[in-house]
């Protein structure tokens, strides 16, 4: 005997109450008032009463199945002679005062005759838009770009064509121009070319020549190949790290230098090799500082190195 008792045979009529909201709180209030003999108008904006509780699987701490404990109350509410259910409706206006309110309810159109519908579900099966995925409103990436950037990126994309094959050349051009791949531009490219953003990132993160973070003005690559290694390239790397205060993969705070390691530059004879802005240098341990100073003074850099 654990279910609700007190079946009502009340003939008492005390007045009427509007309950706004058909979740568990509204349902319980409605039932208690109806059992006490009041006429209850239960207004709910969703097509069905229930609220959030039917979305739950179980309830704590008893682990009761949420629907199992709610359903008797839903049915009781639906069948109670004192409760008038107004679902798919919302409140327009309240006038009056305590004891004498006049309430205007807007009953939205279901487009289904409630008195005839028996809940069979055939209309759902036949619905033409049933299987079209309902995509949420798309984020328009155009909005996040500056006018100049928009022009530039549009130009790049038009040059290579807006196809998925052109992703790599497009990204190379962007990387060249901006010295890295800005997030908002990648979003825009993804949107325009029609390639999912995840795939764009897949490409961006695979190749080491792409960088998602702004690169420094000058790129320093230290060769860690075997020949350079035995000639002391780890010590050179240590020194560079100490001087610049960054680790491989990072960029200095002032945006001047990005440090990277590479596996072999094929210039073993002049090892240990450090490439700075496409210029090849032979840097013995302890000499990086000297080279660094020459770089910051230079405006342009010829391709083949100076030695020492």
């Amino acid at each position: 005997m654990t279910n609700e008792k007190n079946p009502t045979t009340s003939t008492a009529k005390h007045g009427s109450v509007l309950v706004l909201g058909g979740g568990i709180a509204g349902i319980q209030s409605a039932l208690d008032l109806a059992d006490a003999g009041f006429k209850v108008y239960l207004v709910e904006k969703q097509p069905s009463i229930g609220g959030t509780m039917p979305q739950l699987d179980k309830t704590f701490p008893t682990n009761d199945c949420a629907m199992c404990i709610l359903a008797p109350k839903l049915v009781a509410t639906g069948r109670h002679p004192n409760i008038e259910l107004m679902t798919y409706s919302d409140l327009k206006k309240i006038e009056g005062e305590i004891g004498n309110f006049t309430v205007t309810i807007n009953k939205k159109a279901r487009s289904v005759d409630e008195s005839l519908c028996n809940g069979c579900g055939l209309c759902v099966e036949q619905c033409l838009v049933r299987f079209k995925p309902q995509k949420p409103k798309q984020y328009d990436a155009t909005k996040s770009l500056e006018k100049n950037d928009l022009k530039e990126v549009d130009h790049i994309m038009n040059t290579y064509g807006k196809t998925s094959d052109a992703i790599i050349p497009i990204m190379q051009a962007i990387n060249e121009h901006y010295n890295h791949l800005p997030k908002n531009i990648l979003r825009y490219v993804s949107q325009e070319v029609g390639v999912p953003l995840a795939q764009v990132y897949h490409v961006a993160t695979f190749y080491t020549s792409f960088s998602l973070k702004p690169r420094g003005k000058h790129t320093i690559k230290v060769c860690m190949g075997t020949a350079c290694h035995v000639r002391g390239s780890p010590r050179v790397l240590d020194e560079i790290q100490r001087v610049l205060k960054i680790e491989p993969g990072e960029t200095t705070d002032d945006g001047m230098f990005t440090l990277e390691t590479v596996n072999c530059l094929g210039a073993c004879a002049i090892g240990p090799v450090v490439v700075i802005d496409e210029k090849y240098y032979m840097v013995k341990p302890g000499e990086f500082g000297k080279i660094l100073n020459t770089i910051t003074l230079e405006k342009s850099s010829p391709l083949i190195a100076e030695v020492k």
């Binding site: 007190n6 009502t8 045979t9 009340s10 008492a12 208690d32 059992d35 006490a36």
Partner: peptide
């Protein structure tokens, strides 16, 4: 109080015959 009122506002109650 609300729960008690649902009883007190009725003139008669039905008793479960089981």
């Amino acid at each position: 109080a609300s729960r008690a009122a649902t009883i007190l506002s009725q003139e008669e109650l039905e008793i479960d015959p089981l």
